[in-house]
Every structure is written in C-alpha cells, then in structure tokens.
Simulated scan of single mutants.
Amino acid sequence: MKPQPRGPCALIVIDMINTYDHEDAELLVPSARRVVPVLADLIARARLARAPVIYANDNFGSWRSHHGELVDTALAGAHADLVEPVRPDDDSLFVVKARHSIFHETPMSYLLWRLGAGHIVLSGQVTEQCVLYSALDAHIRHLEVTVPEDAVATIHPQLGSAAMEMMQRNMNAQIVAAKEIDFAHPPDQPNPG
C-alpha cells in the first residue's frame, strides 16, 4: 500500500531564473520556450490554491547573490522573455542552490518540514539533471513526488525521456500532464465532493 502524503503539496520551480548564457543553453532554450507557458499556468494555479511555491535556483557562481539580484540579472539578460512569465512574486519562497539537487546542502528539507509539505511537484529545468537528482533526493526523504512532463525542460530530449522513466520506475514519481495537477487535492488524497 502506498503511503499517504503527509500534508500540503508544494510546487518547486527549479533553475528557471536563468540568464541562458551557459554551456548547452542553445539546446535548452527551445525546450524552455515550450515549457514556460505551461509552467506559468501551473504557478498561477498553485498560487490560487495557496500552495507553497518555492524557487530553487543556482546562484550563477556569485556567492554574494540574493534572490532579488538573481531575478534582476536574469531579467536583464537576452532571454528575459523566458523569465518574466515565471518570476517569483512577493509570496514565493526562494532557496539558492549550488549543485544539481535542490536538497544538496540547502535548507530545502527543513523548509518543506516547516511547511508540512509531504508532496512536491518538481518543475523547471533540466529534466535529465537537476530535476532527476532532486527527485531521487526527495524519494530518499520519503516525499511524494509528481513531475509534470510538460513543465520540465531538457537539453537532450532522449536523456529527458530516460530520466522521466527512471523517476517513475525507481523513485515512484507520478508523471502527469501539468493540467492534471490539482494543488487543492493532491493525488492519493480524497477529493471531498
């Protein structure tokens, strides 16, 4: 029997505050363009349902950065059109990360515990890197994981597909379309109505 989620569902937006001036960016940008409208809608629905929205983002190697500076830098870049629709609002939470996993030496576990969130929705980029490693770390922390397949961007589509299969098979992640996610009634919780 599958364990029941332990609390509210949190949406985690991974590395979408981005300047796209890194290696492989030219391969990532087309996928990000397809994902941004879907992700913007997902973020809006999470906010409407009062689900926690947490941005987990690289710091661009600048160890004195804070989230406002990261957003400003990304919005001043060549691909601001990919950042503006998904930018954090005043109620969004922000965790700066240095490596692939949103959990690696960050306060993410503590933050989710404080929120009482036992179920996370992983969105953003890159499916075959940060999303995959974050799903594994969430799984070993006994968190329920959902990945909206149309709200994650890839550099290499074949690796992205393989990562989705690994998350589903090895980490018990639910792979769904973003429109199927109901933040008010996460999967495996009864819908009163």
Rank of each mutant, 00 (worst) to 15 (best):
102 I>E: 08
46 A>Q: 03
140 I>T: 12
116 G>V: 12
12 I>M: 15
121 V>G: 05
166 M>R: 12
174 Q>K: 09
95 V>E: 05
75 L>I: 07
144 E>G: 06
65 S>N: 14
140 I>Y: 05
118 G>C: 05
103 F>A: 06
96 V>R: 05
161 S>D: 10
40 A>R: 11
116 G>R: 12
187 P>L: 13
156 H>I: 11
15 D>L: 15
163 A>Q: 03
99 R>A: 05
18 N>C: 06
26 E>S: 10
64 R>L: 05
48 L>F: 06
176 V>E: 07
98 A>I: 00
60 F>D: 13
189 Q>A: 05
189 Q>S: 09
60 F>K: 07
114 R>N: 10
52 P>E: 14
59 N>P: 00
123 S>H: 02
95 V>Q: 04
143 L>K: 08
104 H>V: 07
30 P>K: 07
104 H>K: 09
59 N>S: 09
62 S>P: 00
177 A>N: 02
138 A>Y: 14
188 D>L: 11
42 L>Q: 08
168 Q>G: 05
4 Q>E: 09
151 A>V: 04
9 C>L: 15
37 P>W: 01
183 F>V: 10
66 H>P: 00
16 M>V: 12
164 M>N: 03
141 R>F: 03
161 S>Y: 00
134 S>R: 10
166 M>T: 15
122 L>D: 03
133 Y>G: 00
176 V>C: 14
191 N>T: 14
142 H>L: 10
180 E>I: 00
136 L>M: 13
164 M>E: 11
24 D>G: 00
47 R>W: 02
158 Q>N: 12
100 H>G: 12
116 G>N: 11
151 A>C: 07
173 A>R: 02
85 P>Y: 08
96 V>L: 14
58 D>Y: 14
89 D>I: 08
69 E>M: 14
38 V>N: 14
76 A>P: 01
154 T>H: 05
127 T>F: 00
119 H>K: 02
76 A>C: 06
188 D>E: 04
65 S>P: 01
46 A>T: 12
166 M>C: 10
